[in-house]
Every structure is written in structure tokens, then in C-alpha cells.
Nucleic acid binder design. Structure first.
Length: 177
DNA sequence: GTTGAGCGTT
């Protein structure tokens, strides 16, 4: 009964244990590699994802760390929370969200702007928050529920041509001395 | 090295 009604505030204060940890309060200069080094102490990782600002390309100061095993993520959560990293005291918690938001679904999700007339241009009927489509496709975050590690490509994606596997060249920046 | 708090659409 303690937190069963699923209110947002409760979920935030008390996220369920998960293999996905949110790491907050990072230095802008902490990289995914750094986080890997730290968090892989507690067990094998499935992924690390620093969130970058889309405009500036810089870190937004938080990240998500995916563990393979729940027991490891639990330990990491407890041991790494409050740890100092790159001069910052970081906060580690089970992530509320599991995955980045689903990109544009490809179909229009907004409310029909049907105003019966021709002038549909202005459209400034959006008061207050002007977040993405009024966050209209948050409903697609149900994808978050499923663990991508278990996903298999069941049908060949048109975006992956088997003839693409030639340019394997990674762009590792060579060290300059 | 532009803080703070911040749960993600490269």
C-alpha cells in the first residue's frame, strides 16, 4: 500500500530496483568511459549512456548505466551513490525511465487541430508548457518496459544492408604527442 | 573547464 498507486512523485522518490541506474550530478567532463570504469567494478555492464544536450553536444550532467544483473546494479546503487567523481558528488538511483524516449512514431500524434476553417496556421493555442507535442507520445514509452537486451532482430531491417559491413573503420582519435 | 537540478528523442 505504501507506493502502489503509481503516482509520479512516489515513483521518483522510490523507484523500483532495476538494472538501469540513473546517475546524476555528473561533471560535464565525465564521459561514458569514466562511468564504465567506475561502475564495472560492481559487475558486468550492458551499457552506459551519458545524456548530451542536443544543441551544444555537451553532457547534461547525468547518465544511465545498465547492468547485466540486478544484484550488481543494487550493489552499485548503494556503493556509488554519493561517490565523488571528477570533483562532483554524484547521485545514483534506480532509473525511473528505462530507455530514451521513442523517436517520432511516424504518424501524427497531436490532437486534431480541427478548427473548422481555413486559417490553420497560427496554432499558438498551446498555453504554458510547450513541450514536445504536449508530450503526446509519452504513451509510446511503454517500449521502456521491455528490456532491449533480450531483443532479437526478428526481421531484416531495411536499414541494415548486408553489403554495408565493409567500412568497419572506427574513428578512434590517434594520440598526438 | 559556466554552478544549481536535472530521468533520456545524438
Amino acid at each position: 500500500e505504501a507506493y502502489s498507486h503509481g503516482g509520479d512523485a512516489d515513483v521518483r522518490a522510490n523507484p523500483d530496483p532495476s538494472t538501469c541506474l540513473g546517475v546524476f550530478g555528473l561533471s560535464l567532463y565525465t564521459t561514458e568511459r569514466d562511468l564504465r570504469e567506475v561502475f564495472s567494478r560492481y559487475g558486468p555492464l550492458a551499457g552506459v549512456n551519458v545524456v548530451y544536450d542536443q544543441r551544444t553536444g555537451r553532457s547534461r550532467g547525468f547518465a544511465f548505466v545498465y547492468f547485466e544483473r540486478l544484484e550488481d546494479s543494487k550493489e552499485a546503487m548503494e556503493r556509488a551513490n554519493g561517490m565523488e567523481l571528477d570533483g562532483r558528488r554524484i547521485r545514483v538511483d534506480y532509473s525511473i525511465t528505462k530507455r530514451p524516449h521513442t523517436p517520432t512514431p511516424g504518424i501524427y500524434m497531436g490532437r486534431p487541430t480541427h478548427n473548422g476553417g481555413g486559417g490553420g496556421g497560427g496554432g499558438s493555442s498551446r498555453r504554458g508548457r510547450d513541450s514536445y507535442y504536449d508530450r503526446g507520445y509519452d504513451r509510446y514509452d511503454r517500449y521502456d518496459e521491455y528490456d532491449y537486451r533480450y531483443s532479437r532482430r526478428r526481421s531484416p531491417s531495411p536499414y541494415y544492408s548486408r553489403y554495408r559491413s565493409r567500412s568497419r573503420s572506427r574513428s578512434y582519435s590517434p594520440r598526438r604527442y
